[in-house]
Each structure stands twice: as structure tokens, then as C-alpha cells.
């Protein structure tokens, strides 16, 4: 399953950002609009890597789907960074 939301939270000693729920699924709109360019880019990468375009798409799709569930949280006494991909 592809990521649908990303939760981002950043806090510094001088500034605190509320946790943002970013609707990652909305990125499909620009991706679809730019799909011809993305396809050409993938063809170029496939030629450079001496593989097939379908295998490359499958690999990229695997990475995209694998991102779901990623969680990174770094916390210090006065700063905090949180990234969660849901």
C-alpha cells in the first residue's frame, strides 16, 4: 500500500511547529500530470542501468510501498524532529 499521510513535527529552542499531517496521496495529482516526463526519465535510467523499464517501475513501486510504516524520531532536551509515514 502506498503512503497516504506523512506526519512531520519539528521543535527547536526558539520555534515550535505543530505536528503536520501532510496528505501525501495528493502528490498523485502532480505525478499523473508529469507522468510523461517521469516515464521518459525512467526509460533513461533503465537504459543506463541496462534493465527493463517494467523492472525499474516494479522496483520504484516496491520502495514507495515500503515507505509506509517508517518512523523517525529524534529528541533532545530542547529540540525534536519527528517524521512518520502512514
Amino acid at each position: 500500500m502506498t503512503p497516504n499521510f506523512a506526519v512531520v513535527g519539528i521543535q527547536t529552542p526558539h520555534w515550535r511547529m505543530p505536528r503536520l499531517w501532510l496528505p501525501v496521496f495528493l502528490l498523485w495529482i502532480p505525478v499523473l500530470l508529469l507522468s510523461p516526463l517521469i516515464f521518459l526519465l525512467l526509460v533513461a535510467i533503465a537504459i543506463a542501468a541496462r534493465t527493463t523499464i517494467w523492472r525499474l517501475i516494479a522496483l520504484c513501486w516496491g520502495v514507495l510501498c515500503g515507505l509506509t510504516g517508517t518512523h523517525v524520531h529524534v529528541n533532545t532536551q530542547d529540540a525534536e524532529v519527528l517524521v512518520r509515514i502512514l
Binding site: 515500503g66 515507505l67 509506509t68 510504516g69 517508517t70 518512523h71 523517525v72 524520531h73 529524534v74 529528541n75 533532545t76
Partner: peptide, 8 residues
Amino acid sequence: TTVNVRVP
């Protein structure tokens, strides 16, 4: 400092 990383 605490770091908590979860990689699928």
C-alpha cells in the same frame, strides 16, 4: 538525546 528509528 534519544533516537528512535523504525524501518519497515
